[in-house]
Design a protein around this nucleic acid. Sequence first.
DNA 1: TATGAATGAGCATTCATTCAT
DNA 2: TATGAATGAATGCTCATTCAT
Lengths: 192, 192, 192, 192
Amino acid sequence: MPISKTTPEAILRAAWIVFHRQGYHHTSLQQLADAAGLGKAGILHHFKSKAGVMRATLAFAADWYQRKVLAKAQGPGTVAERLEAVLRKQFDLVQLNEDGGCFFGNTILETGVEGPFTEELKRFHVDWTAAITALLAEEFPEEEARERTYRIFADYQGSVVLFKLYHDTSHLERLIKRVLSSLAAPLSPGAK
Amino acid sequence: MPISKTTPEAILRAAWIVFHRQGYHHTSLQQLADAAGLGKAGILHHFKSKAGVMRATLAFAADWYQRKVLAKAQGPGTVAERLEAVLRKQFDLVQLNEDGGCFFGNTILETGVEGPFTEELKRFHVDWTAAITALLAEEFPEEEARERTYRIFADYQGSVVLFKLYHDTSHLERLIKRVLSSLAAPLSPGAK
Amino acid sequence: MPISKTTPEAILRAAWIVFHRQGYHHTSLQQLADAAGLGKAGILHHFKSKAGVMRATLAFAADWYQRKVLAKAQGPGTVAERLEAVLRKQFDLVQLNEDGGCFFGNTILETGVEGPFTEELKRFHVDWTAAITALLAEEFPEEEARERTYRIFADYQGSVVLFKLYHDTSHLERLIKRVLSSLAAPLSPGAK
Amino acid sequence: MPISKTTPEAILRAAWIVFHRQGYHHTSLQQLADAAGLGKAGILHHFKSKAGVMRATLAFAADWYQRKVLAKAQGPGTVAERLEAVLRKQFDLVQLNEDGGCFFGNTILETGVEGPFTEELKRFHVDWTAAITALLAEEFPEEEARERTYRIFADYQGSVVLFKLYHDTSHLERLIKRVLSSLAAPLSPGAK
DNA sequence: TATGAATGAGCATTCATTCAT
DNA sequence: TATGAATGAATGCTCATTCAT
């Protein structure tokens, strides 16, 4: 008895949680199926392999990121306020799923180079960089905005490592303080 | 034909490479055995489980790190020279093993909190922090040295993510420039 | 090429034979799979572990016992005739499977107390006792029927040991003679 | 560093306990080694295989049985008293080792026919039969003594099954009562 | 659209055993 | 007399995937 019309999106939503919490290799199709309330074959009916599910999940998450996180870079408020809003929203995700860290960062380190996910992972970084650079460009010259964005990204990813290591959100708070106060200071040298 | 007296250390040296390249979950005992030139059972004769091999490998690597990388924080040369030496040595490791990134950072993100490796992973961070803080304390007040160390660590881990994403060592070079020039500047606010 | 729809019952029928012949611990999943004409994974698709197969097999066998062996305690014929019929049917099973003895008795001694099969094993004894007691109660007072049943059970299990030790069915024939002639005699003392 | 001169007998004493508790197939060489305080290779130095250890253990146990259990059939006291003494001593063994049942009976059912232990197992039964027959022959004609012995043996093995199934020593007590009171009664028919 | 049966490769781990020392 | 290194086969079980229905 078929039934129920599980949407692919519902599967991805469930898969996101599981992949985020456990990583790609440590997640089994069975777990994805359980999370989505389908059989394993049901999952593969929609996405033709485990890697396919992952790819779609990354795309789905990047999309969501764009709409729910990076969108906060636009709209009313000062540059600092909007930057803080983006970072705080980002941290909500980091703390989700039993403190899973950054889904994209995790996946970059786990599947890295040879992985079949490079495209989606790069898209995330490109999106992120574009949004934050555009925001900072309201206040700094283009070139400088780009450099500042770059440094914030690195600082963010590094802070997530500390957060995961010590399970302590203060590392994320410190990042926000650091980033916001850096906006008020001239850019230290060390650029590309 | 048994016998040949593979030392546990030789196994760990081989395991380090494989774990670094592939991550914990994506590495099989068979691969560890192949790398060490033993049968699977031969590995488990020395370490009682795959997790045991990982634990020992992390300890071995942390030790090596202490002796070969962090040791460069001591000795002759200016603070900046020695800091650069440490970072450059670190990058050698990052680029090793098909651009595997930071073995410890990877493992932190992959096995995170609940993992059975927290102890070894924390030790790495504690060692690292102690060495760099001691170095910077030659030039800055204790408190400031600690904060600077903290920021460098975060920046380093974040840069590794970029390196893995784009396969491009320039991200590591930029980190060095950024770090060294920051030594010459007053610490921007945003501390703990 | 998957598919062929092996029924769980077919698996249990095959497993019964193998477990009976070899015992629980000495039987491998591979052997069960071979006997059922499936791969190991095929077996575990139907029963989630080797112990699960054993449990289901014991339940299946107990059921069969009830319908094919103990059912002979009812119906036409004298009490003695029906008791003999039950015992003879029982012996057919004992001699099956390369003289495997009593499947339930074997398992009781092999996995004993702490085993995960106590429930199924007790059910067998309860069924057996209920059927034979009901039969004997046609001729003896309730209490005495129970005691006689008890002694027959012990004698039966003991005779199986001798049968397995010497591979000689005369031990089973002697049991029948002993049991039937005891029906004609008053119950010797020694009750509970 | 060799040392310590573990006697073969000490190994067998330890092996007896483990084999009795767990059965032959469910016992590993490692467990035997642990129990004896040696390495696996140390065990195999004395007995050239696991089966060899089992064989020697059965022989050792049969010997012990002869000297410590069946010896009670001789000496002062009435026939009934001595028979009870033998049975009670036997029950001590049955209850030993986490209610392991009769070591010999267990092994007969577990390894049965094809097993490489038939010889030792038969020796146990022959010894037992000889000792009890000799005892009963003090009071009954040779032929009758043999038949009574035979029945007691079967009843004993059957009672052990009940004891293991219900973990209840009352089954053993009932056996003693039954056996002793049968001595006072004429032998019911049903002989060979 | 989804299931459930099935597969074959692979998993970590344990097995009894060998053998140089 | 005993160890510790090592093996190769086997253990129970999970994996991603296929496919008839």
